[in-house]
Design a protein around this nucleic acid. Structure first.
Length: 739
DNA sequence: AGATTACGATTTTTT
DNA sequence: ATCGTAATCT
């Protein structure tokens, strides 16, 4: 058998067509769970196997490093060999590498620094101060937001200024302009610049653009629905005459509008790329029919979508569960109880807890820890964003790029050297006057009267940096970092600050050093610049260990592209999901709905939803169940009201899902009449009653101390002879009454 | 300069 | 409630 057959095996008709349609523009509309990754990887492998192109002539772009890594690995498996030269990369790291090579032609050096969101905000804050504006009227956060929006539309500071009207906009224009100037002075780019500058490079440096257009014979893009205008332009400027571009996406899963993603990119693909072929993948291989029906019923309420119908061969399935509880704490305790009960039957890494905002993770963490269930939190404050790591990184970045004022300001007085705000301010002033970086001014402190009195403090700092700078090229980075940490006595510093937090800081620093060592071992050729560049684009998603026996907790955004047997989707409340600010704007509301859709379609077998009736945000606020819950087909949902302990059984189409009577919101789809007459089921409490002795498969023999809830939701506190007191859900624990 | 305190904003999601 | 920043004190 030829290898070709294997690459084309086990594909449905649409998938096969997508894999083999290699020439010309192709849009693959890939519904959730429709085998998108499989198509992409097979297609890539097919192109290589058929020798339609050399590996270095193929470019595949994804959004996350994780997705890129997986694609690379799967292609390798399919071809049974490494594929040197093949580029499978994220938009950002592709651009970063391109810019490293060509930095000089746009006025940067190869050593340019990549500013993360935090650095960018700091720099904007400096700009606001430079312009003598009040930080309260122009918050760095809001300003960087506006600047980023502009960049994502490829609007330069000049264009922004010329379009600006009114005081606020023209002030933002000034801040934008100053920010751009400062970035260049720092030899730094923010995340948006990576894309913007790459586009400018390809577009305006004709020979460079031509070079890459000729090189890449085949382009493939994953998650096309999440591309923004700049990313679109990047692709446009990379596609050569052959026009071989294949994009894969699903408009129903577009969830990055807030970051400038433009859903029109996918909706207008046929117009943008003449002669485009469109293939729809509509068979879902992941979820049960019930889950798909439920998710589909919700997404149908969106206007901005092409109609498509996903279908699955997996008939039936368990009903969607919906749990109403009193508080965030109870929500966590209920969810964790269910997980605990189910974990005998389902491996914990086949379940997931999904929430709208990172802040929600906390309650779950506590309860998971209490029950000693292993978990891993994905996202939130990433490893490289922690203070202690950023401190060390700032030193390294300054070594590599002495123009990096943001890093300089971060380390010049850490650990404390008696160089305070006033000194920094004076240096900034001198830097501005003499057109140098802050560090450069510091190295020449003796030339300036203004700094003369601070020489005693500045000199040792400069000498320290210079000493390490000389070593940066020759000494292995992990040893360099180790020396630096020892010499600065940073760990002691953290311990002194706060005993408890200091300890985790120390551990993180140690983990960091290990990470550096590992990196150098794996990439012996790599320089410090390479390393810094790589971790600038690292996200916490990469740290997710899918095989680890721990339950993952993450935001819905992070869960895109993943799948689980059992999905707990929590915090379904108006104001939280959908978020309050999204409820005003129909297009934002639709994005929230897509988010719900993404969450629901992560589930293979069971979907368990929950809302709390009170949730403290800043003070106690009542909350009502999310409108998305009401959009679910009633006969597919089994609800449990934890406050009354009642279980409303499915197949009671009679009842409205609204616990609070009719809602004022207008519904798009008219619902049938809703006669009263709720049906509740009580069962189980007969045999499981306090005092009874039961047998549990793992905990052994125990006595029921207390029971709560009824029916499906009956749970018990049981004192086991060996294992002590446990809370157990009757439904999942295979309990046998023995006395 | 550095530490302490008080106040105020702040919660979306991430490369 | 928590975090970060600004004002105030040592």
């Amino acid at each position: 058998m030829g290898g070709m057959d294997r690459l084309l095996k086990d594909l449905n008709e649409a998938q096969l067509e997508a894999v083999t349609a290699t020439e010309g523009p192709l849009l693959v509309i890939a519904g959730a769970g429709s085998g998108k990754t499989r198509v992409l990887t097979r297609r890539l492998a097919h192109i290589l196997r058929q020798r339609l192109a050399q590996p270095h002539q193929v470019l595949a772009v994804t959004f996350t490093n994780k997705a890129a890594g997986e694609m690379r690995e799967r292609v390798r498996e399919l071809l049974g060999t490494d594929v040197p030269g093949l580029t499978v990369s994220t938009f950002h790291s592709f651009c970063a590498r391109l810019l490293r090579r060509e930095a000089e032609s746009i006025g940067y050096t190869k050593d340019y620094t990549i500013f993360d969101a935090d650095d960018a905000r700091t720099l904007v804050k400096n700009c606001i101060n430079d312009l003598g504006l009040s930080g309260s009227q122009f918050s760095p956060r809001a300003q960087i937001r506006k600047i980023s929006d502009a960049k994502n539309k490829l609007i330069t500071a000049e264009e922004f200024a010329s379009r600006a009207s009114g005081y606020f906009e023209s002030t933002t224009a000034k801040i934008y302009r100053r920010y751009e100037q400062r970035l260049r002075q720092c030899n730094a780019m923010d995340f948006d610049d990576l894309l913007v500058n790459a586009v400018i490079l390809l577009r305006e440096k004709h020979d460079i653009g031509q070079h890459y257009r000729q090189r890449f014979q085949y382009l493939m893009v994953d998650e096309y629905q999440d591309t923004n205008h700049v990313q679109y332009l990047l692709l446009k400027n990379l596609v050569g005459e052959h026009n071989n571009i294949c994009v894969v996406g699903d408009e129903d899963q577009s969830i990055y509008g807030w970051r400038g993603a433009d859903i029109r990119n996918i909706l207008d693909f046929e117009k943008d790329f003449a002669g485009a072929k469109i293939i729809k993948l509509e068979q879902n291989y992941r979820s049960t029919a019930i889950i798909l029906k439920a998710a589909g019923a919700v997404i149908r309420n969106n206007q901005a979508r092409k109609d498509k119908t996903l279908w699955t061969a997996i008939d039936g399935g368990d009903n969607v569960n919906y749990m109403l509880v009193d508080s965030a704490d109870e929500e966590a305790s209920e969810v964790v109880a269910k997980i605990d009960a189910m974990r005998e039957a389902v491996p914990v890494n086949q379940m997931v807890i999904l929430y709208r905002t990172n802040a929600q993770s906390r309650a779950f963490e506590e309860h998971l820890r209490r029950r000693a269930i292993p978990y891993q939190i994905i996202g939130g404050v990433g490893f490289y964003e922690r203070r202690e790591i950023k401190d060390i990184l700032a030193y390294l970045r300054l070594l590599v790029n002495p123009k990096d004022d943001v890093s300089f300001a971060r380390v010049v007085n850490f650990p404390k050297r008696g160089i305070g705000a006033k000194t920094l301010q004076d240096m900034a002033l001198l830097a501005r006057e003499t057109d140098q970086s802050w560090y450069q001014v510091a190295t020449r402190w003796h030339e300036y009267d203004l700094l003369a009195s601070r020489g005693k403090r500045l000199k040792p700092f400069v000498e320290l940096i210079e000493k390490y700078r000389e070593q940066a090229d020759s000494r292995p980075t992990d040893l360099l970092v180790q020396d630096l940490i020892d010499e600065l006595n940073i760990l002691q510093e953290y311990r002194q600050e706060d005993e408890i937090q200091g300890q985790t800081r120390v551990e993180n620093v140690e983990a960091f050093i290990e990470g550096v060592a590992e990196y150098s071992a794996q990439n012996p050729e790599a320089t410090l610049v390479d390393y810094l560049s790589e971790i600038s684009l690292y996200t916490d998603l990469e740290s997710y260990e899918e095989d680890e026996p721990a339950i993952p907790l993450m935001t819905i955004h992070s869960a895109k592209g993943l799948e689980y047997d059992i999905v707990f989707l929590v915090g379904l409340e108006e104001g939280l999901f959908p978020l309050a600010r999204a409820t005003e704007d129909p297009s934002q509301l639709e994005e929230e709905r897509r988010l719900f859709y993404v969450a629901a379609t992560r589930a293979r077998k069971r979907l368990i939803l929950s809302s709390a009736t009170t949730r403290h945000r800043f003070g106690v606020v009542e909350s009502i169940p999310s409108r998305f819950v009401e959009e679910l087909p009633i006969d597919l949902v089994e609800r449990i009201d934890r406050r009354t302990g009642r279980t409303a059984v499915s197949n009671t189409p009679a009842e409205s899902l609204s616990f609070f009577g009719p809602r004022h919101q207008t519904r798009r789809s008219p619902r049938q009449e809703q006669p009263k007459g709720v049906h509740y089921e009580f069962e189980g409490e007969e045999q499981f009653r306090p005092g009874r002795i039961v047998q549990h498969p793992t905990f052994g023999r125990g006595k029921i101390v207390n029971t709560e809830g009824f029916g499906e939701s009956l749970r018990m506190e049981i004192m086991f002879t060996g294992a002590g007191l446990k809370k157990i859900m009757a439904k999942y624990a295979k309990l046998r009454v023995v006395g």
